[in-house]
Design a protein around this nucleic acid. Structure first.
Lengths: 148, 148
DNA sequence: GTCAATATGACAAGTATAATGTCATTATGA
DNA sequence: TCATAATGACATTATACTTGTCATATTGAC
């Protein structure tokens, strides 16, 4: 039974992700943000100003693509470059005021959505789900890592 | 707190899915299956023989792409067509013996992996996680649906 | 039975989200 | 100092789809 539930849980990850992405996308309508720009802004908002390779490491996608994402985001005026004292070739990406306002607003609206989505689920159950999903993800990552 | 946990849970969906996909892919090495062929076989194994449009509906992807998936799977000898009495233009896809053996074996190996991944998590917690994830997915789908 | 609406397979093209490869330049660190 | 690594920029390729179109076959309402 346990393995069966686990299998089902894991195969829910795709529908969950797709539903989540659809909501995120819907939430961006009206702003001039794209989903990938939002991802950049979220990293800067959450972990502070940082370089492109640092963002790439956090998002676990290749730096070359994050570079594109960041360039776009910068062209749209949501982030700006600052000199990096620790690494002259790699400027630090920082939120502009506009970027900060936008991402705070988006996250805030997403949190409002979370309240609706939370519905009748208890905080305890959600916390349990989070803990399980994290453990399973870590475990799967390790399994896959060993195989390669 | 609840909304915060929920937000985190939802944003775990991508890492979870990616880790899961990596494991599934690793499990297919040695078989002549691809991930998308595996998906076709799983649907046939789980829900019985059915037409391409039916599989597409279950996978929630466009029938044109499922057609490609099924054609590949058929060319590789894992499924075969049978006449469809209910719809002459649309043959029923059915597992061949080889296909049945392969998918049973894959699923069985995945279940073994589930035992390892389950680790010290209780069945109760996993069941809770599954219930929460399903509820959240349904809720998000509805939200996104209303917006579009 | 007729006939408009629909379903299906086949095929072509496009799109989003990346990965991969390469290069010149610059830092870094032993 | 000098080999090695890091970075941005750019080009190519890959994957997993979606969208659009067409001819034909099928269905269902009347």
């Amino acid at each position: 039974m346990k393995t069966e539930h686990l299998h089902q849980l894991i195969w829910m990850s795709r529908p969950l992700m797709q539903a989540a992405e659809a909501c995120v996308e819907a939430g961006l309508v009206g702003t001039d943000l794209t989903v990938r720009m939002r991802a950049v802004l979220e990293m800067l908002d959450k972990y502070g100003e940082q370089t492109v390779p640092e963002i790439a490491a956090r998002l676990e996608i290749k730096r070359q693509y994050v570079q594109i994402m960041c360039n776009e985001t910068r062209e749209s005026g949501f982030i700006e470059q600052r000199a990096n004292p620790r690494h002259k070739r790699s400027p630090i990406m920082a939120l502009t005021d506009r970027g900060r306002t936008v991402i705070k607003d988006i996250i805030s609206r997403e949190m409002t959505l979370m309240e609706e989505v939370g519905g009748d689920l208890s905080d305890e159950d959600i916390a349990t789900a989070l803990r399980v999903v994290r453990a399973v993800t870590d475990s799967l990552k390790q399994e896959a890592g060993e195989t390669e």
